[in-house]
């Protein structure tokens, strides 16, 4: 990400009182101190640069997903583009079916919690051509809805189930969003920053 094209900036992670100021959605007992963090770097972060292969891939991506791209960036040879949730399936299908990009494998799907919004990140990869790309979708935290990509990649099934369980992200169109890794009756979304840390129930 270069400095100018971050749509919503990440929260300034200042000294320890940063996390304690947010009201957690789950009641945090006295032992739920957030972990102490050191203050961030004072120096400017070096800009992320794409090498030549990354530039080529980014050019292809921008061309085929032209009307839907909100922002772009990348590092080394992995470019990223950001789209809206409504256009995600279309962009993903074009990435998968394009003959030069050939991004046939959904390598990773994750959700990052930026407190006011959640960001779904899709890492795509081509085992044959060797191209890699990242798709990002930002959704507001109070209405986290993203269309499901299970129609395009079968790997999305379990990824989305896990992200739904850990972050509360809704994937519309997913056939079966039942709990996968947490035990039944687990309350809350443990991946979110508002989930109390350092807290455990003596079983």
């Amino acid at each position: 990400m270069t400095e100018q094209d971050k749509p919503v900036s990440e929260p300034e992670e200042s000294a320890p009182e940063g996390a304690a100021d947010e009201t957690p959605q789950v009641e945090a007992p006295a032992s739920a101190r957030p972990a102490r963090r050191a203050p961030p770097h004072e120096e400017e972060a070096p800009p992320e640069v794409l090498n030549s292969r990354g530039q080529t891939t980014l050019g292809l991506l921008m061309r085929i997903a032209d009307p839907y791209v909100l922002a772009h960036g990348g590092r080394d040879d992995i470019p990223w583009i950001e789209t809206r949730a409504q256009s995600l399936i279309e962009v993903a299908r074009r990435c998968r079916d394009h003959r030069d990009l050939d991004l046939k494998m959904l390598h990773c799907l994750l959700v990052v919690d930026y407190t006011e919004h959640l960001q779904a990140v899709y890492v795509l990869l081509s085992p044959v051509k060797g191209t890699r790309a990242i798709l990002k979708v930002n959704v507001p935290a109070d209405e986290p809805k993203v269309p499901s990509l299970t129609g395009l990649w079968r790997a999305a099934d379990w990824y989305e189930r896990e992200m739904h369980e850990l972050f509360g992200m809704e994937f519309e169109g997913h056939p079966n969003l039942s709990p996968l890794i947490l035990y039944e009756g687990f309350e809350g979304y443990p991946g979110l920053k508002s989930f109390p840390f350092n807290d455990y129930n003596e079983f």
């Binding site: 035990y183 687990f186 443990p190 989930f195 840390f197 350092n198 807290d199 455990y200 003596e202 079983f203």
Partner: peptide
């Protein structure tokens, strides 16, 4: 007693709880 996962939300801190 839970070991390296002593702060985790999903780990029982030692099997002697059970």
């Amino acid at each position: 007693n839970g070991g390296p996962y002593y702060r985790s939300y999903s780990v029982v801190m030692g099997v002697d709880h059970i």
